[in-house]
Simulated assay, not measured.
Amino acid sequence: MNIPAEFNEIRPYTPEELPQIYEELIADPAFRTVVESVMPGVPFEGLAMKMRQCKTNLEFQKAFFYGLLWDLVKKTANGLTFDCSALPDLTRNYTFISNHRDIILDSAFLSILLIDKEMTTVEIAIGDNLLIYPWIHKLVRVNKSFIVKRGLNMRQKLEASALMSRYMHFAMKEKHENLWIAQRQGRAKDSNDRTQDSVLKMMAMAGEGDIIERLKELNIVPLAISYEYDPCDFLKAKELQQKRDDEHFQKTPEDDLINMQTGLYGYKGRIHFQTSACLNHELDELKKLNLPKCELFTAISETIDRHIHSSYRLFAGNYVARDLLMGDNRFTAEYTEEEKAHFENYVEQQIAKVDLPGKDTTFLRHALLTMYANPLINYLKAAKG
């Protein structure tokens, strides 16, 4: 396929480029060290040979990531389920826009779930702030990621957004790929999941016709991701206190690495992915309202949020957290005393993991309870509709 050169710096590698990238990865001692820690006892030379046999990105994903990720589910979760019954046509390509819980696993789990539905895996929007080492930069592009450039000035940001939008439309129309993008930059630290208008504005920069027609080209599907337990919850609470105590606080690359590792290997309980229907019909309805541009983007964001919020899978901990946060017993029918004690104990264990001088236990507990209560609070608001 003839891919425009303007996308060379951000797009996934093509099958023709893979052999060279494989050799660069195989020769990288840092990559070898990581592989040997993830797959102990497996000879690296054998893995290198297996890599060289993968002719496409999808073959690589199926040969390596598919099995590794399902093994990870067995070790760190109590099941991973997927409901895409709202999508009657699984042969179409979609842009999944989801809430964002885990740096790596949100899109990775989606891909293995799509494989099981005999759909193609997603091309993944990933921020370049996470590409800490050269081997990570190469591996994510083998794994069908396209790069979102961060830390730019206003003019550069506008140019980068326009380029990314053109690439997403190209990937959908010409490459016939599924796409995944988070509804906002970074994870919602308090689980109050809201779509940023700026994400939709970027997506509507390319394509044909008016804003609605451009967005319809991407076949947007809201996707709700629910984790019973978020292994990074204590790190998110810690970051909230750091930002409270220092308005100039910025996470370091090392912080991102710790979040990635904790998210991968920490306990998650039950995990559920739930799609809504493709938004194209609702976009047509919004078009009839003739809203000003800013109001239109806000209305589309709110539509996506409503679908995500109403599609959450709720667990006992969500109900316990909400009752503890509000200081009442509204949802006692949704959990047992044993489940309540278990969740309270879990919260205390997570607070104990926070390593901060001047650790504010009351603040951290409130932050953790808010994280687990917000999906229920938003679900109830969406249900009222």
Score class of each variant (00 low, 15 high):
residue 122 V to D: 03
residue 287 K to F: 04
residue 45 E to G: 14
residue 46 G to L: 15
residue 270 R to D: 13
residue 183 Q to R: 00
residue 270 R to Q: 14
residue 217 E to T: 13
residue 337 E to Q: 15
residue 308 I to A: 05
residue 19 P to Y: 06
residue 303 T to F: 05
residue 144 K to R: 10
residue 149 K to Q: 15
residue 309 H to Q: 04
residue 228 E to N: 11
residue 124 I to F: 04
residue 68 L to R: 12
residue 65 F to P: 07
residue 328 D to W: 11
residue 74 K to M: 15
residue 237 A to P: 01
residue 269 G to E: 03
residue 356 L to W: 06
residue 385 G to K: 06
residue 200 L to K: 02
residue 365 R to Y: 06
residue 183 Q to W: 00
residue 276 S to L: 08
residue 108 A to K: 04
residue 299 A to E: 00
residue 247 E to R: 12
residue 370 T to H: 01
residue 335 Y to N: 13
residue 333 A to K: 14
residue 149 K to P: 13
residue 136 I to H: 05
residue 222 P to E: 00
residue 367 A to K: 05
residue 80 L to V: 05
residue 38 V to I: 13
residue 224 A to M: 01
residue 327 G to A: 09
residue 128 D to V: 09
residue 58 L to D: 12
residue 336 T to Q: 10
residue 351 I to G: 04
residue 89 D to H: 04
residue 233 D to M: 07
residue 153 N to C: 13
residue 196 Q to R: 00
residue 188 A to Q: 02
residue 124 I to P: 03
residue 342 H to D: 15
residue 84 C to M: 07
residue 23 E to S: 14
residue 79 G to Y: 11
residue 192 N to M: 07
residue 239 E to P: 02
residue 330 R to T: 14
residue 116 D to C: 08
residue 183 Q to Y: 01
residue 331 F to L: 10
residue 92 R to L: 15
residue 109 F to Y: 11
residue 233 D to E: 09
residue 151 G to K: 00
residue 53 Q to V: 08
residue 227 Y to F: 15
residue 287 K to R: 04
residue 169 H to N: 00
residue 277 A to G: 10
residue 38 V to L: 11
residue 167 Y to P: 02
residue 43 P to I: 03
residue 378 N to S: 13
residue 302 E to H: 01
residue 250 Q to C: 05
residue 202 M to S: 00
residue 328 D to Q: 09
residue 87 L to R: 09
residue 66 Y to E: 13
residue 68 L to V: 10
residue 55 K to W: 01
residue 53 Q to L: 11
residue 23 E to P: 10
residue 385 G to P: 09
residue 262 T to E: 06
residue 276 S to E: 06
residue 295 E to L: 10
residue 82 F to K: 04
residue 50 K to D: 12
residue 11 R to I: 15
residue 294 C to E: 07
residue 89 D to T: 03
residue 155 R to Q: 14
residue 298 T to G: 06
